[in-house]
Amino acid sequence: MSELQTAGKVQASSNLYTALLALACGVVLATAGFVAYKCWFDYGTIFKITEYIQ
């Protein structure tokens, strides 16, 4: 156990690296949103990329 857990309160050891992780997560989320928007806009669905059209 680290001394941070012993204090009973989660506290970031470094705000810089937390910010980096948050930025990475945000970038990943934004990318996922962009891809979802693109799929919806182009194909009308998110999960089915192709479907049979009569």
């Binding site: 992780l21 930025l23 990475a24 997560c25 990318t31």
Partner: peptide, 22 residues
């Protein structure tokens, strides 16, 4: 943390460029 952040940003950029130009 630094590597994950850098790679995630890089890969997301690549994905955005690929999807945008697909």
């Amino acid at each position: 943390i630094v590597l994950v952040s850098v790679f995630s940003i890089f890969l997301c950029g690549v994905i955005v460029v690929y999807v945008g130009s697909s």
